[in-house]
Design a binder for these strands. Structure first.
Length: 868
RNA sequence: GGGCGCUUAGCUCAGUUGGUUCAGAGCACUUGGUUUACACCCAAGGGGUCGGGGGUUCGAAUCCCUCAGCGCCCACCA
């Protein structure tokens, strides 16, 4: 036999990758079929594949491949995201290594570097997705900075502005002092940290007394423009109209009264720095306080900090605390645990900062998006994320969309150079000048205006993704968007529920008055086997491509999916890939066996073959229904497990073992053909999970139509399955008996039985799988016969073996247990309330159990009496 | 502080409206096996008072109350 004994995935997988690439098999264009569409969550353009991607994209590939097999027009749109802040940070770092500072070069120069960087490192991840088998329509590959998508973004901005959803305002925002940009609330992560609470002395003007103010940030005293207390705080009621002197600074500031101050915190006095805290900003606004920003953009102290000017905020804090201590201005210090805000991207401590930014009003846009999910028009799997979503959406805050970066979509707002309060929103400078004319009646030239320096939040382009990849923003009724939108399913991690999923739903209704997708499938996080999140820092994240080299893409795909129910974190262990690889090998060898059968064209199918084919056909039909159900509920792992057992247990261990000709014998042509049909159906069921080996074997199987298609399932005949299960149980018991009695498998034994269940075909199966003779007899009961009970039928096994004392005590134990069980059943059945209330089916079942237990007891008693 | 979820075999997890098939699966483990597809294999087997306590019911892994432990999300106080 020239087929390799061990399956070697690499060669075969590479062959199929080439074929898929060359033949462009996953291309989709609108036609008369029903569409099944997925848009990929675009990975970072310069990113590299990690286990999370592998899981996420494998699931998408499974869904899309199954849809394709079902005959739907399956379209999976791939693409990448420019990932504004993340990519810019990488480029900045690269430049720094070259000795170039971002601030020393122009915007255009920076962008040239960034594009070079993107071209050099970009797109790698798409090739990696190909390697794991992703069947995307690669002709449709999009990048969020492509000109068409960029235009869509700009059009969107203009539309939102024209319709009154955009505004520019000075607010306290999250400032990343390392990336030098604002962040949205979603880009900030909180971490618990132990710090110190300092009690500072603020001298009361014209008095020797001090007011004690507790703060964690003494370095911000240069920005203090008031001290606030709660109006209900009796301790401070007498301080109305008094002023305080800010320590070190010497500035006189008023005492103001504001009910947002917690009486119980610290001393109940809050130092107010309106430029550096949202709450303080509001207090400042209400009391018309001066706003003093004491930080430069990189969070060093500015000129307001006097001698501390130029120091980093943490260094300044140290020195200020020293100086305050020296001058006796700290009354006490206590340790205090609170949450500090960190930038998701740079991990630096976020500084609340007052700044002028663009915002989207979200409240109204969110309304239809809430309804869509609550009403079930869009379904979440698992459901639990619905609550999280609803909660967030109902309390949604305006979205800060401007970022002080270069890499991204530049905000299409043009300001009058010498008066920034006058601006227009437009596609380009030319249009801007026209708009200035119509809005302000200004006759301007290009030199009079300047475009906003900021770019848009990355998510401002990706929230349009399901629309913009089909060009539905610029051309709202083109053929593609009409055909593919709304898309079918989206697959992503719950970590971007707010960043992306919620916003896509909102944009879907805002721009198209329609949902972007029907179902959202949330995957869990991939963790290592200890439960730790996989990360670069811990070094516990395997490289999927390396794993593929060892186990094959098919093996890694199913290895990952073996324990990945929707929404649950996945504890990844490389052992799972071993299981995946072994499974590939099992399928491969099943093929080897079938391929190697000797064939008899004359011989009609033997009775064992007939029984096997009859049963497997029904069993397959039943399993297909179960598999479809699992898919319909997005229980992908469950679908895989049913398929796995169908192949390994049902097809290999049972079906093939029954039809396998004995040594020197041959299989009938008819049965061989039936087997090939089964095999092909199985390969179709496997294709979504293991596309490489499935296609390879389908091609090799040597049947007329090698094209895989999702098998239909006729209604299955339960009786056939039940009878087969019956003999299966018998087979197990016989094998068990042989093992328990040290009878070699090959040694033939005799089985006596008397029932109508077994026909000749089933009998031949039992013979084949247990190596026994079956003899019909009327209750043959002899001393040397052992009995087994299957359902209510008794089988006797003839054996030389006599029972020993251990067996006897075992039988006695069993008898005792069954007598006890019988008592319980009898008690239950004599309970009047049970008989009155329980459904008939339940009562019938209890009676059946009682019948069974009675026969069991009878047999056991007979056994014991025989032994005496 | 507000909200959501989880706790079932050694591990990872199923378990729909309480009742047939309910105490399950995969892996791991134990035992026995191989010249005739595959030791990346075959066969058989042992594992759980369903987190603790209480309640409703003829009947609870499933419903209610309570306690304990774990996880996630949101908000954030100087």
């Amino acid at each position: 036999m020239e087929i390799d004994k061990v399956y070697n995935p690499n060669e075969i997988e590479n062959k199929w990758l080439k074929k898929w690439d060359k033949e462009n098999l996953f291309k989709s264009v609108p036609d008369e079929r029903e569409a099944y569409t997925i848009v990929i969550p675009p990975p970072n353009v310069t990113g590299i594949l990690h286990m999370g991607h592998m899981l996420n994209n494998t699931i998408q590939d499974i869904l899309i491949r199954r849809a394709r097999l079902k005959g739907l027009n399956a379209c999976w749109v791939p693409g990448t995201d420019h990932a504004s802040i993340a990519t810019e940070a990488k480029v900045v770092k690269m430049l720094k290594e070259k000795g170039i500072k971002k601030s020393d070069i122009s915007r255009d120069e920076f962008l040239t570097y960034a594009w070079d960087w993107t071209e050099k490192h970009g797109g790698l991840i798409l090739n990696q997705l190909k390697r794991i088998g992703c069947s995307c329509d690669w002709d449709r590959t999009k990048f969020t900075l492509d000109s068409d998508l960029s235009e869509s973004v700009i059009d969107t901005f203009i539309k939102l502005f024209d319709e009154g959803y955009l505004y520019r305002d000075k607010k306290i925002v999250n400032w990343d002092p390392e990336a030098l940009t604002t962040l949205s609330n979603e880009e900030v992560i909180y971490k618990e940290e132990e710090t110190k609470l300092f009690y500072l002395k603020y001298q009361i003007v014209d008095s020797k007394d001090y007011l004690i103010v507790a703060t964690t940030r003494p370095e911000t005293i240069f920005g203090d423009t008031a001290v606030a207390v709660n109006p209900d705080d009796n301790r401070y009621k007498n301080l109305k109209n008094k002023k305080l002197i800010v320590p070190l600074v010497g500035r006189e500031v008023p005492i103001v009264f504001d009910s947002s101050v917690e009486i119980d915190f610290g001393t109940g006095c809050l130092k107010v720095t309106p430029a550096h805290s949202e709450k303080d900003f509001i207090i400042g606004k209400n009391n018309e306080l001066e706003i003093i920003d004491i930080f430069n953009d990189d969070a060093t102290i500015n000129h307001h900090g006097k001698k501390y000017q130029g120091l980093d905020r943490f260094e300044a804090k140290k020195q200020i605390v020293n100086d305050l201590t020296e001058q006796g201005l700290i009354s006490k210090t206590e340790s205090y645990t609170h949450n500090i805000a960190l930038s998701e991207r740079t991990n630096s401590v976020v500084e609340p900062k007052l700044s002028l930014q663009w915002f989207i009003k979200m409240k109204k846009i969110a309304e239809p998006a809430i309804d869509a999910v609550v009403s079930g028009d869009i379904k979440f799997y698992p459901k639990k994320y619905m609550n999280t979503y609803k909660n967030w959406m109902e309390n949604i805050r305006d979205w800060n969309i401007s970022r002080q970066l270069y890499w991204g979509h530049r905000i299409p707002v043009y300001y009058l150079k010498n008066d920034n309060s006058k601006f227009v929103v437009s596609k380009n400078v030319k249009d801007a000048l026209v708009k200035f004319k119509s809005k302000f009646n200004f006759e301007l030239t290009v030199d009079d205006v300047e475009q906003d320096n900021d770019v848009l939040d990355t998510w401002f382009s990706s929230w349009l993704w399901p629309i913009s990849v089909f060009d539905g923003i610029r051309n709202p009724s083109n053929d593609d968007i009409n055909y593919y939108y709304p898309t079918s399913d989206i697959v992503t991690g719950p970590d971007i529920l707010f960043f992306w999923i919620a916003r896509m739903i909102m944009s879907g209704y805002y721009f198209r008055d329609n949902k972007p997708f029907n179902n959202v499938y949330f995957t869990g996080l991939v963790r290592d086997k200890k439960g730790q999140k996989m990360s670069k820092q811990l070094g516990n994240s395997p490289d999927p491509i390396e794993l593929i080299k060892n186990y094959g893409a098919d093996g890694v795909r199913i290895g990952l999916l073996f324990s990945a129910p929707a929404g649950n974190d996945l504890l990844f262990d490389e052992k799972l890939c071993v299981q995946g690889k072994n499974f590939s090998n099992k399928i491969w060898n099943a093929f080897r066996l079938v391929k190697g059968f000797d064939i008899s064209t004359q011989k009609p199918p033997q009775s064992n073959e007939l029984a096997a084919v009859k049963w497997f056909n029904e069993n397959l039909n039943m399993k297909i229904i179960e598999i479809n159900n699992s898919y319909d509920n997005f229980k992908i792992s469950e679908a895989l497990m049913i398929t796995y057992k169908l192949v390994w247990d049902d097809f290999c261990s049972i079906f093939l073992e029954i039809i396998k000709p004995s040594y020197g014998d041959a299989i009938s042509l008819k049965t061989l053909n039936d087997t090939k049909v089964f095999f092909k159906k199985i390969l179709s069921l496997l294709e979504p999970f293991m596309p490489f080996i499935s296609n390879e074997l389908s091609e090799k199987l040597d049947i007329s139509n090698i094209k895989l298609e999702w098998p239909n399932s006729d209604v299955h005949d339960q009786k056939i399955i039940e009878n087969f299960n019956h003999i299966n149980e018998l087979i197990t018991k016989v094998r068990n008996f042989k093992k328990a009695n040290n009878i070699p498998f090959k040694e033939s034994i005799k089985l006596y039985f008397d029932n109508k269940i077994l026909d000749n075909e089933l009998i031949s199966v039992i013979k084949k799988l247990t190596n026994s003779e079956l003899i019909i007899s009327k209750n043959k009961e002899e001393d040397d016969l052992n009995s087994v009970l299957i359902g209510k039928y008794i089988y006797y096994i003839e054996s030389e073996k006599k029972l020993n004392h251990d067996d006897i005590s075992e039988i006695k134990d069993s008898l005792e247990y069954n007598i006890g069980f019988k008592k319980i059943l009898e008690k239950k059945l004599s309970n009047k309330r049970f008989i009155e209330n329980a459904p008939q089916a339940v009562i019938d079942n209890e009676m059946k159990k009682l019948d069974d237990v009675k026969s069991k007891i009878k047999i056991l008693e007979k056994k014991i009496s025989q032994l005496k």
